[in-house]
């Protein structure tokens, strides 16, 4: 393996660990009794960040220019936005 190969593996491994950590944060927040607006916004934001990590790093769309990456970004944005709207409606 070349030097760069390790770098790539390192990136995906770090991504993986990051995803695990973020998941635990989500879980802990709920367990520790965080509630209401902060829980909703925080947890949703974390979910979207995780989604973005999957799309860019795991799916490998980081290097994909037109259409596909913007499309999936738009997806996260729309779904996240609509869910947030529904949860924050008075």
């Amino acid at each position: 393996m070349q030097k760069g190969d390790h770098e790539l593996l390192l990136t995906s491994t770090i991504t993986w660990l990051l995803l695990l950590a973020l998941t635990l944060v989500t879980y802990a927040a709920a367990q520790l009794g965080v509630e209401g607006k902060w829980l909703i916004l925080g947890v949703l934001a974390i979910a979207l960040i995780k989604g973005k990590l999957i799309i860019d790093r795991f799916m490998g769309l980081r290097w994909v220019g037109s259409f596909w990456r913007p499309m999936l970004d738009l997806y996260l944005f729309t779904v996240g936005g609509l869910i947030a709207t529904a949860f924050l409606l008075p």
Partner: peptide
């Protein structure tokens, strides 16, 4: 997961 299990 967050939507159905956590967010409230």
């Amino acid at each position: 997961f967050p939507l159905v299990y956590v967010m409230r």
